[in-house]
């Protein structure tokens, strides 16, 4: 055929077809996206420190393993309160003349999603020691260690942030581990990653492919008794600080094993701490506890399961709590301020 034997016609046609389709599926949708999406009213631009932290996040290729998108499927519920929407990314523009826009949505979830990590893991001390060596707080972690973001000082100054690294991770190091400016910036960035609530009255997109509840009625659980796996919930929500053995980390996170608060027959303070956070042990060198229950949107039955797990593990032995009892205390805690020294 004449057309196939004319290289100009042939390659022009192929190129035109490709460019035409490209405009339809890439250029137009991208331009339209920019036109119709605005940042949410509640969205705050990154602070200078967090922005610097984002550059460190980018430079070290953290996006290779961490996504920043909550998909609109039920299994992604653990990463945010609602699915991500286009407006969540509307604040992000070109980094600088050399570097493209970094939405950092990612394509691999070898490590946890970070969309809402500022809410989920707000503890600065944990973040620092975790960066120095992730295995010091999460034994199974395969995340790289970032010791080059820290300095070793014999006599840290007043303004230095000293990191409480467990002994077995201090091999060959004499002195104190001090967070460098870069480490603090990176943590500031991580702590700034919070899902912005939708404006009042806006219905968030639905989570699709709902999980069929396996633990529905008829599995033998007595009424009022939570049929949830407290150990699994503990692993997901508490373990990274309080550790699998419930002993916490000396100088960073308090033990739950033998803890008065945990074993108390009246769990009022216990529930209050879970729902509102706690600063009561700062004098003993432990950092503040974030309001995990509220942040992670835990329901009364889930909190009960976690509490009962903690009250009956590692040698702890206290009476089982009921959901109704805990529900009452949760409702009460919502009216209370953050508990401090008692």
């Amino acid at each position: 055929m004449e057309f196939f034997n004319d290289h100009k016609k042939l390659f022009t046609t192929a190129a035109a077809m490709f460019i035409g389709l490209t405009i339809l599926v890439a250029i137009i949708p991208a331009l339209k996206n920019d036109k119709i999406n605005r940042p949410l009213p509640g969205a705050v631009p990154l602070s200078a420190e967090a922005r610097a932290g984002k550059m460190i996040f980018m430079a070290n290729g953290c996006v290779a393993c961490h996504t920043q998108q909550v998909r609109n499927v039920d299994m992604d519920k653990m990463w945010g309160k609602r699915p991500s929407i286009a407006a969540d990314y509307a604040l992000i523009h070109r980094t600088d003349i050399w570097r493209n826009t970094a939405t950092l949505m990612g394509t691999e979830r070898t490590g946890p999603d970070l969309t809402d990590v500022g809410n989920r893991q707000g503890n600065k001390d944990w973040n620092l020691v975790h960066l120095f060596n992730p295995r010091s707080v999460v034994k199974e972690s395969i995340m790289p260690a970032y010791p080059w973001l820290f300095e070793i000082k014999e006599n840290p100054g007043k303004n230095d942030v000293v990191v409480n690294v467990p002994k077995e991770f201090m091999k060959g190091i004499t002195g104190k581990v001090v967070a460098s400016k870069k480490a603090l910036e990176l943590v500031a960035y991580l702590q700034s990653l919070k899902q912005v609530p939708l404006p009042d009255g806006t219905v968030p997109p639905e989570f699709l492919y709902k999980r069929t509840e396996k633990l529905a009625a008829g599995n033998g659980a007595a009424p009022g008794e939570p049929a949830l796996d407290g150990a699994a919930l503990y692993t997901a929500n508490c373990q990274s600080c309080h550790q699998p053995n419930g002993e916490g980390l000396p100088g960073a996170f308090p033990p739950l094993k033998g803890s008065k608060v945990v074993l108390d027959d009246n769990p009022e303070l216990y529930v209050n701490i879970i729902m509102n956070g706690y600063t009561g042990l700062e004098s003993q060198g432990y950092g503040p506890m974030p309001n995990v229950g509220t942040m992670n949107n835990l329901k009364a039955d889930e909190i009960t399961a976690i509490m009962n797990h903690e009250r009956s593990s590692w040698g702890n032995n206290a009476r089982k709590l009921t959901v109704a009892e805990v529900q009452k205390l949760i409702d009460f805690a919502k009216t209370q301020p953050v508990a401090s020294q008692k």
């Binding site: 949708p29 991208a30 286009a86 990314y89 970094a102």
Partner: peptide, 15 residues
């Protein structure tokens, strides 16, 4: 850089 703001970057990236 003309179509890379926000999610535009993701659409361009997928492509």
């Amino acid at each position: 850089p003309f179509w890379q703001n926000g999610l535009g970057e993701t659409i361009a990236q997928g492509y």
